[in-house]
């Protein structure tokens, strides 16, 4: 998948989880800036993204992600 495709799919997940608008899901977005994106929901989010994209993250990747841009880069590389 290219970056645009990855983001298109991510919009839906972020909408479902946090009710975010498309324009809010930008590469610089971090968990601190999103209401409800706590450590539990982070794991739920990662599990959901794994199943939506058909990929598997390592626990290292899950725990060290800095922002949405980094997540998207991993997804572009894996899909």
């Amino acid at each position: 998948m290219n970056e645009t495709q990855v983001y298109t799919k991510l919009y839906d997940v972020f909408d479902e989880f946090f009710g975010l608008e498309q324009s809010e899901v930008v590469p610089e977005l971090t968990a601190d800036q999103v209401d409800g994106w706590d450590s539990l929901n982070h794991i739920r989010l990662m599990l959901k993204i794994q199943s939506e994209f058909g990929v598997k993250f390592s626990s290292g990747q899950i725990s060290s992600l800095q922002n949405v841009g980094e997540l998207a880069n991993i997804l572009v590389a894996k899909t």
């Binding site: 794991i43 739920r44 599990l47 390592s58 626990s59 899950i62």
Partner: peptide, 14 residues
């Protein structure tokens, strides 16, 4: 095992 290390959960969320 990954979930155990990440969050000390005993079984897969699935």
């Amino acid at each position: 095992p990954g979930m155990w290390h990440l969050a000390r959960v005993s079984c897969a969320n699935r």
